[in-house]
């Protein structure tokens, strides 16, 4: 029996988005819409952070409900079906890109207002499909700044088999009193780059990393022979 579940997603207790899980479409589908012209069988209200934990099976709908982290209106019995369906749609995908994205979404904050956060998620997917971009141990650190202040840090690394094996991320928002301690991983190349410049590198074909370095828009320290390899990210 098909059902539709409306999910009201909150960010800091304020309504931020409405999603519908529609199983009247074969296989089930999540759609972000303002409203749906069909009968909704249940409405969930949940914080964005908890919703992602729920989708990845890190918490169950029953747990979220019992702990008061999710409100449900309508058919409570749908929770079990929902859990099973979400598992089928999401959790069976064990692709390398989704595993890294899952780790970032589950274990780290996403700093809102920072374009590079979303761009980096795209880059992770690209990196996961790129073999041997970097030799094992040649980790790269990106420090993303806005108006000269560091906002986020990303470290990427490959293993000896030539696959992406490390993506670490932290943002100032979640750090201790806004002070960021560098991620404790040895790196071969450290890049300090503005959020806008980083985004331009990704979207603007007329702007590349070497230009950005030459014009002092980007500070790079370490093994500069890695720069051409990093260009492939963008």
């Amino acid at each position: 029996s098909a059902f539709i579940v409306q999910v009201n997603v909150l960010k800091d207790k304020t309504h931020a988005a409405t999603w519908f899980l529609n199983t009247r479409i074969p296989g089930g589908r999540f759609e972000r819409m303002d409203s749906i012209d069909q009968k909704v069988d249940a409405t969930l209200t949940i914080e964005d952070e908890d919703y992602v934990l729920l989708l990845f099976g890190k918490i169950s709908p029953q747990f979220a409900f019992l702990k008061g982290r999710m409100k449900i209106k309508g058919d409570v019995l749908l929770l079990q079906k929902l859990n099973r369906l979400v598992g089928k749609i999401l959790r069976t995908r064990e692709d390398l890109d989704l595993i890294f994205v899952r780790d970032i979404l589950v274990n780290s904050k996403i700093q809102s207002g920072l374009q590079s956060e979303i761009v980096f998620i795209e880059i992770i997917q690209r990196l996961a499909r790129m073999q041997n971009l970097l030799p094992s141990g040649d980790n790269i650190r990106f420090n993303i700044v806005v108006n000269g202040q560091q906002e986020t840090e990303w470290v990427i690394g490959y293993n000896e088999a030539g696959n992406l094996s490390m993506v670490k991320h932290q943002c100032r928002m979640e750090s201790n009193e806004g002070k960021m301690t560098p991620i404790q991983v040895p790196t071969k190349l450290d890049i300090i780059i503005d959020d806008n410049d980083f985004t331009s590198l990704f979207y603007n074909t007329n702007f590349n990393l070497q230009n950005a370095i030459d014009s002092n828009r980007v500070q790079v320290t370490g093994d500069l022979t890695l720069v051409p390899k990093i260009e492939l990210l963008f």
């Binding site: 997603v9 960010k11 931020a16 988005a17 999603w19 999540f30 972000r32 964005d48 952070e49 919703y51 992602v52 989708l55 749609i89 999401l90 995908r93 890109d97 989704l98 994205v101 979404l105 996403i110 700093q111 809102s112 207002g113 920072l114 956060e117 979303i118 998620i121 997917q125």
Partner: peptide, 14 residues
């Protein structure tokens, strides 16, 4: 607006 669920569903669609 920096919603994790938006990021996740974008990835799922790609």
């Amino acid at each position: 607006d920096g919603l994790k669920c938006d990021v996740l569903f974008d990835v799922m669609r790609s």
